[in-house]
Amino acid sequence: MRDKPYKPKTWKELPYATITDVPSTFNNTGTWRTVKPVIDYDKCISCMICWKFCPDVAISIVPNPKEGAKFDEVPKIDYFFCKGCGICAHECPVKAIDMVQEESK
């Protein structure tokens, strides 16, 4: 796998066969978003249902940055990839995720 985006300058730099080795993780799908999910970590019970149902794998499980918290791991949303579908907010059993309107830049 390559570690930077693939941008050939001429056709001579193209590979011989249609075999790909460029991961899609260079794709900034976060720009599709109009509403963004924000997790309220005070309400979050670390059930990881949001992680389970994310179609974009944009939610990962990370160590809890808060010292001495009840749960040692929490879900974290990667806004570079999150398309803002809202499944996480809808499925959250304690309604800890809010969908916030994106502001224009």
Binding site: S24, T25, F26, T29, K52, P55, D56, K83, C85
Partner: peptide, 30 residues
């Protein structure tokens, strides 16, 4: 470690171009 009901390994990467809220990507992931 928080216990998850399914393993944590991922074989589907981020940045794919499915529509928002696509069900087929969840199927592929599992």
């Amino acid at each position: 470690m928080v216990k998850t009901t399914v393993p944590r390994d991922e074989y589907m990467m981020q940045g794919h171009v499915a529509c928002q809220g696509c069900g087929a990507t969840i199927a592929m992931r599992y």
